[in-house]
Amino acid sequence: MSTGLLFVTAPEADFKAINHFLIYARDWEFGDEDTWDNFHLVTSRKDPDLSKFSDSRRNELPATKPGDVTAETSNEWSGASIQDIERYVLDHEPTGIDGNEISLFLILDCQSLRDRTCIIAERYTEWNDDADPPEKFPKEDREKQYEFNKYRAPWDETYICFANLNIGNMDFEDFADDDEGEEDVGADGEGWWTFRGMGSDLTEEQVGRREGVVRRFEGEGKI
């Protein structure tokens, strides 16, 4: 799985809040010391994060681990809008940087800190299956005109949702269910879906390990 991009737009999100989220965004079910961190905190608007690793074979960005974010960490995305980030991704998505799924990314905004949710966004595309091979419809021919599907997922479901979308195991709408048995609501005009999710599959032991790290980081003043 490629490294995902994480943008933090909430001005009040200090290093402790970001580290706290990163603990919950780990792969606590299958991860180990080398693989359970999977998100790269994007701190600059000038693209060093996407270009400076372009010489590596898979061009993978290093994951930002809990504790890597400190009081000295700068963040040029503080106060940015979702539209700012979408434009940034659209500008860089055609570069074809292999190994970084930049059309699928996370955002922590002000609401994310209040209710412990994370915005998961994925570029919206429609495919012409009659073409051989299938090809993407240009925007003007698509049924929907927004650029990104989006929903808010709880912190402890962020990783499993991202991972399944990243490897193509599930589609975006698979995590957005119908409303109490009614017909599927789908996305609104700006691409927002209602996240239903599947709940957390973590065992009591896995949750205990996670909460143990939370307590340790609290004691060390990192969250």
Rank of each mutant, 00 (worst) to 15 (best):
M1D: 09
T3H: 02
G4V: 01
G4S: 13
L6T: 02
L6F: 05
L6K: 03
F7W: 08
A10N: 08
P11E: 15
F15W: 04
K16A: 03
N19D: 11
A25K: 03
A25E: 11
E29L: 15
F30W: 08
W36P: 00
D37V: 03
F39T: 07
L41F: 15
V42E: 06
T43N: 02
P48Q: 09
D49R: 10
D49K: 04
D55V: 09
S56Y: 12
R57E: 15
R57D: 14
E60H: 07
E60N: 09
L61S: 04
A63T: 06
K65H: 14
G67R: 01
T70Q: 09
A71V: 13
E72G: 03
S74P: 06
E76C: 01
A80E: 02
A80M: 00
S81K: 12
Q83R: 10
E86T: 10
Y88H: 09
D91I: 05
D91E: 15
H92S: 04
N100A: 11
I102H: 00
S103N: 14
S103M: 01
L104T: 11
F105R: 04
I107H: 02
L108G: 00
L108Y: 04
D109P: 14
D109H: 12
L113H: 05
L113F: 06
D115H: 08
T117R: 11
C118M: 15
I119N: 00
I120S: 07
A121M: 05
R123S: 11
Y124N: 13
E126I: 08
D130F: 13
D130E: 15
D132R: 10
P133T: 08
P133E: 12
P134Q: 12
E135C: 13
E135A: 15
K136I: 15
F137V: 09
P138R: 03
R142E: 08
E143W: 04
N149V: 06
A153T: 11
P154L: 06
W155A: 12
E157P: 02
L165R: 01
D171N: 13
E173T: 09
F175Q: 07
E183A: 12
V185Q: 12
G186A: 07
T194Y: 14
G197D: 08
D201I: 07
D201G: 05
L202F: 09
T203I: 09
T203M: 12
T203R: 05
V207Y: 07
G208P: 02
G208A: 15
R210I: 01
V213G: 00
V214S: 00
R215W: 01
E218Y: 04
E218P: 00
E218T: 05
G219Y: 00
K222G: 00
I223E: 00
